[in-house]
Design a binder for these strands. Sequence first.
DNA 1: CGTTCGATGCACT
DNA 2: GTGCATCGAACGT
Length: 218
Amino acid sequence: MPEHALPRAFYARPTLDVLRDLIGTVLVHESRGARTAGRIIEAEAYIGEADPACHAAPGPTRRNAPLYGPPGHAYVYLNYGLHALVNAVTEPEGRPAAILIRALEPVEGLAAMRRRRLRVRGTADGLIDDALCRGPGNLTVALGITLARNRADLVGGRLRIVDDGGSRAGGWRLEWTPRIGIRVGTDARWRCVVAGHPGVSGPRGATGADSPRRPALR
DNA sequence: CGTTCGATGCACT
DNA sequence: GTGCATCGAACGT
């Protein structure tokens, strides 16, 4: 299956367009020869200094510098002191924006993913495949992505995003919702998910396909 | 089913 | 010193 890295021009576009087109592509990480990969099934846009939830909201700082840099690079930062979250920088250089990758459908290196998840938190086992890369903090653990990958070039580096031709293969339907896990900027529907996909994060059944049905309670 | 809460590190005021 | 773009265990209902 031929795979090619998404070109720089792919990222140098309006962020919501990039977000839509990013769903279905594959995030690949090679670490110590071990290769893990997952198809992007959930992501969110953070766009410009006017977006209160974007890290660029306070203007340029040392931390958010990658957002102002060239598109097609990774912005990886630590949040809650625990989780490395990975973003893809978008828009032409100078326009701070990025896409937070929130969930993947595991594609390659499932054993390594499981090993890493178990090592990080000794919690056992009951981990089904769909949960390996569910959630932005979980997928970085599964793929072994750390802060060392901040500013990494996503166009053909060891951390990269590729199109393997499977992007629309599943006939997936995309659903746009407000972003989750934030306290401001919750009005914009800048979260894009594959509707009903079991690997998507957030409240289960929130994607409409199979809302949990509950008998009326007294 | 739902909500609460602790762990944890770093950038920023 | 404060505040997170989180996670999952532990509890309440």
